[in-house]
Design a protein around this nucleic acid. Structure first.
Lengths: 167, 167
DNA sequence: TTTAATTTTCAAAAATTATTGAAACTTATG
DNA sequence: CATAAGTTTCAATAATTTTTGAAAATTAAA
């Protein structure tokens, strides 16, 4: 496999994985490109490499910045903006986990709490709804708590010790 | 909140969450409906409750069956098929984790292994590609391993002991 | 200021993904 | 076997999401 092939495969694989997990392809591919690039890139370079429009690049870079995954870099004496992504995989995972928790999981937990406290009118339907949404609420709380602990844990999350504990 | 409102909110919330995570809305909503239903439902009932077509129902129920989340039930003396979903949230989480690992994570790990073993031609670009995809490969392997351990672990995954260990 | 480089916005177009519904298929029953 | 109940398939259509590109906005330098 040549460098060019490896690069293309990586960017396209990352794009597809993103799509599968509800992240748009351009956004995932921009992140992939920055992730393997030794230096920060300009809008022009991103457009060129991924063959996407200026508007698309601008919007998706902004989203990546909103997610806290990409940073703007300004070079002395240059007008253009340069973009770079978080290079440390663990920090990257932490940031993504934190954001998905904040944006998606926490709001669902709140909704589940409301739903599961619906007044019990004694019917089987209502009883089942309460039982099941309570169980889901519990699971979501615990899973989210682990996610958050993981996120705070500065060193070696996904540590060998946890793995050992689970064997 | 009345039962009807709670039910509607649950189904619609679950559908939206699914969409956000790359699962189609109808599929997520069918699962949600079965999840809070005290008894197994027929195609007709699902269509009726969710206001979706027969074809849509058929295809998405099939997908849920493929994922191992929904089971067909046959009632003695009845021609119709009844569908029910896994009711235990932990078992549900395990099944979903296992499937996403098998379908999505493992193939990516394989690709990352291939990419990261590209021949090092000494350029900065190649060196960075190798370094970064290796790191990602490592992370994915560890994360997937935890997922698998979790899945095998019959009792109390996401257990209090792990939580305690991480505090 | 004025000009020019660069980024952002957003309506329109394109691409993708989901849904419908009717025909084809399957299978249990009289 | 013939019929009817029920399920699946899939081409056409609809809905949604993404992308484009040019105009507007912003900002740095002349």
């Amino acid at each position: 496999m040549t460098y060019a092939e490896a690069k293309e495969t990586f960017i396209s694989t990352w794009g597809s994985l993103g799509t599968l997990w509800g992240i748009n392809k351009a956004m995932a591919q921009i992140q992939a490109l920055l992730f393997i690039s030794p230096n920060a890139l300009t809008t022009e370079e991103i457009m060129q490499e991924l063959q996407i429009s200026r508007g698309n690049t601008s919007m998706n870079v902004r989203q990546l910045i909103d997610w806290g995954i990409v940073k703007k870099e300004l070079k002395a004496g240059e007008r253009k903006e340069y973009y770079s992504t978080e290079k440390d995989v663990q920090e990257l995972a932490r940031t993504i986990a934190k954001e998905r928790s904040r944006r998606e999981i926490k709001p669902v937990i709140k909704t589940l709490a409301e739903i599961s406290s619906v007044k019990d009118d004694g019917t089987a339907h209502t009883k089942e709804l309460i039982k099941q949404t309570k169980a889901l609420h519990d699971l979501a709380l615990t899973a989210n708590s682990i996610l958050e602990k993981t996120v705070d844990h500065k060193q070696n999350w996904i540590s060998k010790s946890i793995l050992r504990l689970m064997k």
